[in-house]
């Protein structure tokens, strides 16, 4: 098939926000890119790193406080269990749409050839080591190394 002029061949995503609604956009865009044959790297930084941190990746919830998109008053969102309930409702809907939970999604992107990296500055700041990350994480990178391996890529910040 003839290729479109200017077709995107490579992207680098920066996943900087924790919480479900912070992480999913990066993962959906990364997986979608692989499905189109686009080369993909994801650079996880700050709380976005929760997505690939062993202790946290299974417990990521949607923020019900300070999240205007939820359309939920702050006092209501702050009730204990509210965040867990909203998360479980959303996960059910996502499962119907075949959007996997975060750990499975990470594995899927890794198996599809997407490369996952953790940010050195955040790793140092949080006092983490390579052992804190799921095995799908390729490497801990400095910002400079990230730019270097993003040569020729579109960089997308989420």
């Amino acid at each position: 098939m003839a290729e479109k002029a200017g077709a995107i061949k490579k992207i680098s995503l920066v996943c900087s926000k924790g919480s479900l609604d912070g992480i999913y956009p990066s993962l959906i865009m990364a997986n979608g890119a692989r499905m189109e044959g686009i080369e993909v790297s994801i650079f996880f930084t700050f709380f976005g790193m929760d997505a690939v941190t062993k202790k946290k990746m299974n417990k990521i919830k949607i923020a019900t406080v300070g999240n205007p998109g939820m359309g939920m008053p702050t006092w209501l969102g702050a009730i204990p269990g509210m965040s867990a309930m909203a998360t479980s409702m959303m996960m059910k809907t996502m499962d119907k749409l075949d959007i996997p939970p975060i750990p499975e999604f990470i594995e899927m992107i890794h198996d599809s050839g997407g490369k996952l990296y953790a940010c050195k500055a955040t790793v140092d700041m949080f006092g983490l080591t390579e052992d804190d990350f799921c095995p799908q994480v390729e490497k801990i990178l400095t910002v400079g190394e990230f730019y270097d391996l993003s040569a020729g890529a579109e960089i997308i910040f989420t």
């Binding site: 959906i28 499905m35 189109e36 075949d98 198996d111």
Partner: peptide
């Protein structure tokens, strides 16, 4: 997943659907 990408590099679902004589898949995942 790994096998799908190895069998149909450059777009596993898109290419296999086309070869199978089916419509282009319209889902994001």
């Amino acid at each position: 997943t790994k096998e799908l990408y190895a069998l149909y590099p450059g777009g596993p679902l898109k290419k296999s659907s086309k070869i199978a004589g089916l419509p282009k898949p319209a889902s994001c995942v």
